[in-house]
């Protein structure tokens, strides 16, 4: 049984689930649960991006824009439209997918850095609308998110949201693993390795790329909705800003593109490190920059692939 689990492709999801269930017994206060929730949320968004970047080899520098759509959906729906939170969240995911579809159709033809700058532009557009349309979004100072009410009981407490975020991440992982080992996953890997070759073997390149782009936008939107629920107050910069997009891509690359646990490791580094570096006060940014550079120089495939490779070497 254990042996089968260890060999299972779902091993990373099992590990994540176990870690999620065990952590509350180790962590001394809700502050740590809050930090862990942030790791889960950003890992989820980064995981979607990892499907796009790691699996299909397509880059997006505007992914926080989709997070913003998900986040503002659960704020605007209940506040302005009288729609309950859960349908609002679903609508946010749907809207995010629709936007990704409409944007992706033309821009996914672009390659490499051209795709990077086009997605960056799309992300900026979303962020700009959220900042400027203040009658809906509260403008740059942001807006409050009404508490989620389920069965007439408000969902509150750091602990509850910790489990919600954790479960969402595990589900996201299982879906990502399924996709990776599906025919679509193989097609996407073929596209990453060579679009021309993929086309020659009969893969509908444009369609597959669009599919994974829309899927990654859905991951980001779910993460955005969760972020909004956990925080209770959202601002355009903290959900959809350009720097947030850069942060997401950094998480994916630091953790290791392609590895399912990569985004989790990357998110953990970028969420926990600033908390740990507060002891250095004014020097924290310098140290953060140094750590990022050192990580990428020493472990150029990213944390998880580099470490697993070393682990295999040692056990082999």
């Amino acid at each position: 049984m254990l042996n089968r689990m260890l060999r299972s492709r779902y091993l990373p999801a099992f590990l994540m689930l176990a870690a999620m269930l065990a952590l509350p017994y180790v962590l001394p206060s809700t502050y740590y649960l809050r930090v862990a929730s942030m790791v889960f949320v950003f890992a989820l968004a980064a995981m979607g991006l990892n499907l796009l970047l790691g699996l299909a080899g397509q880059v997006s520098l505007g992914h926080a824009g989709f997070m913003g759509v998900g986040a503002y959906a659960v704020a605007i729906g209940p506040t302005h439209l009288g729609v309950p939170a859960i349908p609002s969240a679903l609508a946010g995911v749907a809207l995010s997918c629709l936007l990704a579809y409409l944007m992706g159709r033309p821009i996914l033809k672009l390659k490499g850095y051209y795709l990077a700058v086009a997605t960056l532009g799309c992300g900026l557009l979303i962020s700009m609308v959220l900042t400027n349309e203040a009658q809906w979004t509260g403008g740059p100072d942001g807006m409050g998110v009404p508490r989620l009410v389920l069965f007439d009981a408000p969902v509150r407490g750091v602990q509850t949201w910790y489990y919600v975020c954790g479960v969402a991440l595990v589900i996201g992982m299982v879906l990502a693993i399924n996709l990776t080992f599906s025919p679509t996953g193989r097609a996407l890997r073929a596209i990453r390795d060579s679009e021309v070759a993929a086309r020659v073997v009969g893969i509908d390149v444009a369609r597959q790329k669009l599919f994974v782009f829309v899927l990654s936008a859905a991951y980001a939107a779910v993460a955005g909705s969760l972020l909004a629920f956990v925080n209770g107050h959202i601002t355009p910069d903290s959900t959809s800003g350009f720097l947030r997009s850069i942060e997401l891509i950094t998480m994916v690359v630091l953790g290791g593109t392609g590895a399912v646990l990569g985004p989790v490791a990357g998110a953990a580094i970028l969420v926990i490190l600033p908390q740990a570096l507060t002891v250095f006060h004014d020097y924290e940014h310098m140290i953060l920059g140094l750590v990022m550079m050192a990580c990428m120089i020493a472990l150029r495939q990213g944390l998880v692939p580099a470490l697993t490779a070393r682990f295999r070497e040692r056990t082999a």
Binding site: A19, A22, L23, V264
Partner: peptide, 14 residues
């Protein structure tokens, strides 16, 4: 493994 990393970070932080 990530759980372990998280755990040890948490312990260190504690």
């Amino acid at each position: 493994m990530v759980g372990r990393i998280l755990g040890s970070v948490a312990i260190a932080a504690t």
